[in-house]
């Protein structure tokens, strides 16, 4: 019987703790040996919504929070703890897509601010935020950052067509 098969209302109503523990136990290993990181996944589950994950070796960047109040979060996998990102999140901005390098040092972000989308590069050690212009003009939708932090690929909508812009970073 699968863990999902046990998730009947009755089981949860009588012994929710037991059912959760059993579910986690049975779901702990998938057939091929891939193992969920239980502690981290439980911590992430405390947030109402998490989406658009980006991994950089020991770092996980996600967009999470409640609807309309989402923020970029950066978690160190080995410590299972988020790190502060001063100057990156703004209450009036909606994050769209995020990427992180392997050191958790550079984060690239597309965010929506006052109805317009912009591309920014954040350097964590410097707490600096740099706006990168989209040229020719277009609407950025999604991005990727190479783990070495040197190349940025941005999907940009222009005139009904999606294109990929490639930027080399110093």
């Amino acid at each position: 019987m699968s863990a999902v098969g046990l998730r009947s209302k009755g089981v949860f109503a009588v012994a929710p703790g037991f059912a959760l523990a059993l579910g986690l136990l049975l779901g702990g290993c998938l057939d091929n040996g891939a193992r969920p990181l239980m502690g981290l996944n439980q911590q992430l589950a405390h947030t109402a919504v998490n989406r658009d994950p980006a991994l950089g070796s020991d770092w996980l960047a996600v967009i999470g929070g409640r609807e309309g109040r989402e923020q970029v979060r950066l978690v160190r996998l080995s410590q299972g703890a988020p790190v502060p990102l001063p100057g990156l999140n703004r209450p009036d901005a909606r994050p769209v897509s995020v990427a992180v390098d392997q050191w958790g040092e550079r984060l690239a972000l597309i965010r929506e601010l006052e109805g317009r989308r912009e591309l920014v590069l954040y350097r964590r050690s410097l707490q600096s935020l740099q706006l990168i212009p989209i040229e020719p003009a277009g609407v950025p939708h999604r991005l990727a950052l190479s783990a070495d932090g040197r190349v940025l690929a941005v999907e940009v909508g222009r005139g009904g067509l999606s294109q990929v812009d490639l930027l080399e970073l110093p």
Binding site: L44, L55, L60
Partner: peptide
């Protein structure tokens, strides 16, 4: 999202209309 060394995979899952992220050790 696959980690550069291939050791971890982060998956955004949708359950009951809610998005959440789980990380797997590979």
């Amino acid at each position: 999202s696959l980690a550069p060394d291939g050791r971890h995979l982060a998956v955004e899952l949708v359950e009951d209309g809610q998005s959440r992220v789980e990380v797997f050790n590979l």
